[in-house]
Computed example of a mutant assay.
Amino acid sequence: MTMDPRDLPPAAEYVLRLLDPEDEAAFETAMRSDRALEAEVAAWLRHFEALNVEFPEESVRRSVKTRLMERLFDTPRVTEPIWRRVWLWQGISLAALTLAAVLGVQSLTGPAAPPGSAVYVSEIVSETQNLRLLAAYDPTRGELKLTRTAGGAPSGRVLELWAIRGDAAPASLGVLSDAETTAVPLPEAFRDPAGLILAISEEPPGGSTTGAPTGKVLALGEAVAL
């Protein structure tokens, strides 16, 4: 960049998280009713996206994955342990988080959100990056909006969405359609992002009949409040 950081416009400072909390909150309030400002944020996001290339990816230790997958999914039904075939998220990328934030803000430009509700997002991604979905919770409709940005279900199979909180067993949120964008009604129990994990498994047509994942768990994501 040749621009003096002191001359950056508010939209660029917002993308780089340089605004103080009060200014950031005021900016997000303004963005909810200003589509031009949303577009400016998206443009700055694309401008800064290449900065992510400078940071190497860090993998979670295998022991952490093992303990988590044992706790969440109990004993797998397949010979190969499930945690050896599933990658745990490395965190939401700057690009995905900012785009999801814009999506979340756009969803609130309609009716007012219920008191105490919160927008949250999750990047649900596989180890190889060949399956990736962006999820944003819309409290005005009680829906989780999912946008598939890469990959799909294996031939003859479907993708099923699961929600996990704490030590509870995975709860199915339904089978995802083949459409790029899907809206899933979200039960009250999963409208708070604290400790919430979203997972995608591949299942037979119609989805799991056991109330638990029966096929491979392909992707995982952690809910992050905006």
Rank of each mutant, 00 (worst) to 15 (best):
P5A: 02
P5G: 02
R6M: 05
D7E: 13
L8I: 07
P10W: 14
Y14D: 08
E28M: 02
T29L: 09
M31K: 03
R32D: 00
R32S: 08
S33D: 15
D34F: 08
R35Y: 11
E38W: 04
W44C: 11
L45G: 01
F48R: 00
V53R: 15
E57M: 11
V64L: 14
T66R: 15
R67E: 15
L68M: 14
E70C: 12
F73W: 13
P76G: 12
P76C: 06
R77T: 04
T79I: 12
E80R: 15
V86Y: 04
L88E: 06
Q90I: 08
G91E: 00
L97Q: 07
T98M: 13
G104F: 08
P111C: 01
A112H: 07
A118S: 14
A118Y: 09
A118F: 10
E123T: 09
E127W: 09
N130A: 11
L131R: 12
L134S: 02
A135K: 05
P139Y: 10
G142A: 11
G142H: 06
E143R: 01
T147C: 12
G151V: 01
G151D: 11
G151R: 05
P154M: 07
P154C: 01
S155Q: 11
S155I: 11
V158M: 01
L159H: 04
L161H: 00
I164W: 01
A168E: 12
A169V: 05
A183I: 12
R191V: 00
G195I: 01
T209N: 07
T210E: 10
G211Q: 06
T214Y: 06
G215L: 10
G215N: 05
K216D: 08
G221F: 04
